[in-house]
């Protein structure tokens, strides 16, 4: 009578019953037919079928609920469908409606990646299993024919499959939600000690070398001018121009001397200090000086 899957399969008999049930509902339940009932779980849990229930009555009520749930699901409102089905399931004590409610909760959870909704669905499926196993036993009232005997075993299978697939879905969502472990921040690479001194020393040594170059240039220029001035035919304005040029060359030479002395002295000192400091701070092989004989005499090599 009832299709095994509420949302995707409908038999022609089911359609006819649905039409009848919907018609009846429109007459007898105008309020329910226009708005889904709000869920009051506390109250719902207390409501139970009080008197005899026939298969046909249960089936009609179920079809009505399923029709309304289907339209809610089709309008992408599985959460409302789940609430409505849950309420009806409690009202009727219908295990198939509990399974339908579980499926709707699962759809909702799947859409919104909501674990609570999926768990709620699992509880609905478990209630359905409670009822189905009870109906298989000998304590069930013969007047409570909420589903036919032949429907019990397939419904149990359906509910158990639903519990399994819902548990897998929860695992899937949990995996998605699991935050990737924060990668450890790379520790700032400490500069080996004495780097500043070595850099400064190198710069000053460079300045000293430039000073030596300037000294050489000034001296060469001065010597050249001196040679010209010493010639007897040079006198007057020409002599004065060469004299000025010679003075300029001397200035270059003196500045070069100053730079060379200061730069080389300070640069060498800083380099030595820097290397010493590096050696002290990092007793490792990173800084290694090696003095070794080579073909051309001694060689000094190292890394810093």
């Amino acid at each position: 009578m009832t299709s095994p899957n509420l949302f995707f399969r409908r038999s022609s008999v089911g359609r006819r019953l649905t039409a009848v049930a919907t018609g009846l509902a429109l007459v007898s339940l105008p309020v329910h037919a226009t708005a889904a009932p709000t869920v009051d779980l506390a109250a719902a849990m207390l409501v139970a079928p009080e008197g005899p229930v026939s298969e046909s009555d249960a089936s009609k009520a179920r079809s009505e609920a399923q029709d309304r749930a289907r339209s809610l699901v089709q309008s992408d409102e599985p959460d409302k469908a789940a609430e409505m089905l849950e309420q009806w399931a409690y009202d009727k004590g219908d295990p198939l409606l509990f399974i339908d409610a579980a499926e709707a909760h699962k759809l909702h959870g799947e859409r919104d990646r909501d674990i609570d909704a999926v768990e709620r669905g699992i509880e609905m499926a478990r209630i359905s299993l409670d009822i189905l196993y009870f109906l298989q036993g000998d304590r069930a009232s013969p007047d409570w024919r909420v589903i036919s005997v032949s429907e019990v075993t397939p419904a149990i299978r359906r509910a158990e499959d639903l519990v399994e697939s819902s548990e897998r879905l929860i695992q899937e969502i949990e995996d998605e939600n699991a935050e990737p472990e924060p990668e450890p921040e790379p520790e700032p690479k400490e500069k080996p000690g004495g780097t500043g001194l070595i850099v400064a020393g190198s710069l000053l040594t460079g300045v000293g070398a430039a000073g030596v170059g300037l000294l050489g240039f000034g001296a060469a220029k001065g010597a050249s001018v001196q040679r010209k001035v010493n010639q007897p035919e040079i006198y007057g304005d020409e002599f004065d121009a060469l004299d000025a040029e010679g003075k300029k060359a001397n200035v270059f030479a003196f500045v070069g001397i100053g730079l060379a002395v200061v730069g080389l002295a300070a640069g060498t000192t800083l380099l030595v200090l820097g290397v010493k400091k590096r050696k002290q701070s990092k007793q490792s092989d990173d800084v290694a000086f090696r003095v070794a004989p080579t073909f051309g005499g001694m060689s000094i090599s190292g890394r810093f």
Binding site: L46, Y90, L129, D130, F134, A140, S141, P142, D143, W144
Partner: peptide
């Protein structure tokens, strides 16, 4: 012989006399 609810349930109204009760979790 009827489903009454899923625990915890309260305010189940029972008339005096004997009542058949079963509480189950699945099978």
């Amino acid at each position: 012989g009827y489903y009454k609810g899923t625990a915890p349930i309260s305010e189940v109204e029972l008339k005096p006399g004997k009542h058949d009760i079963q509480v189950r979790n699945g099978d």
